[in-house]
């Protein structure tokens, strides 16, 4: 034991000890921490649900309650029957966990969870009751929609979506600072999940009202209408307000400059 005692007054002893203890804490945490990506892969459902339950307790329970029963005074809904699709949508788009419970859950930059963690959370919430599952690709994939199907999707879009999300999905305002977000580039599975789970103020569009085939058509329309070329600068797709702004600024503005130029040019009869 002499090497321990002899070196303990060495200059590097303290920093080294600190590093060692940090490493130990990290190693222990890694060993006991639930639902790491490697442990979630390929395990049975029960294990996934258990991992999800742990994640839920750490990340969600403070508002939604330990058993997802919701907390009315926090404005946090009961999650018993929201289904895996709702969890996948809310967590993957960074709406949940919320930064501030008093404002709208707006899509953030990037989710803080890995795919497997989201899967585990979704599996746990799905195990609590009945709700839409995370969709398979064949439920939302718009690649098989025909041209006419996309046109039909446009009609459905204008009937059901454009009132809030604007005619090409550029988004719009709702009361009290809430917005209907831009959906021009939303991934198809998230459109499907939003329709089926009705996040925020959005109504639920159940399969009985808009079957999966029609959802694919709507998704195909959003994709194609935004991929189509516009007739010049599209001005953000905001409608006549932007057009009026440019008529005054670019149109009248430049014409007045030209008028000034013409009036000051030499006029010698």
């Amino acid at each position: 034991m002499r090497f321990l005692t002899s070196g303990r007054r060495h200059k590097a002893a303290r920093p080294l000890l600190l590093l060692l203890s940090l490493f130990l804490v990290g190693a222990v945490y890694a060993a006991v921490s639930p639902a790491t990506s490697s442990s979630a892969e390929g395990v049975a459902d029960a294990q996934l649900v258990a991992a999800g339950k742990n994640l839920f307790a750490v990340n969600c329970a403070s508002c939604h309650g330990l058993n997802a029963e919701g907390l009315a005074q926090q404005g946090a809904p009961n999650l018993t029957n929201v289904g895996a699709a709702a969890v996948d949508f809310q967590v993957r788009t960074r709406r949940m966990p919320m930064a501030n419970p008093l404002t709208q859950a707006v899509p953030g930059s990037k989710t803080i969870f890995t795919d497997d963690e989201i899967k585990a959370l979704a599996a746990y919430v799905a195990s609590l009751g009945n709700g839409p599952a995370i969709p398979d690709q064949n439920q939302y994939d718009p690649s098989n929609v025909s041209a006419e199907g996309a046109a039909r999707g446009g009609d459905l879009f204008r009937t059901n979506c454009s009132a809030c999300h604007n005619f090409k999905g550029a988004g719009g305002a709702l009361p009290n600072g809430v917005v209907a977000p831009r959906i021009e580039n939303t991934p198809p599975e998230q459109v499907w999940e939003a329709l089926r789970t009705g996040p925020g103020q959005m109504p639920v569009f159940a399969a009985g009202a808009i079957p999966d085939q029609d959802v694919q058509k709507v998704i195909a329309y959003i994709k194609q209408v935004n991929a189509a070329p516009s007739a010049g600068l599209s001005l953000g797709g905001l409608g006549p307000v932007a057009e009026g702004f440019w008529a005054w600024v670019a149109g009248i503005g430049s014409l007045v400059l030209f008028a000034i130029w013409i009036a000051t040019r030499g006029t010698r009869a």
Partner: peptide, 22 residues
Amino acid sequence: IQINPVWLYGPYNPSQVTAGSQ
């Protein structure tokens, strides 16, 4: 500069409306 892209608005249908109707 694109103005009044009617093909995006679609035909008039009393049951439809769009955000940004001005």
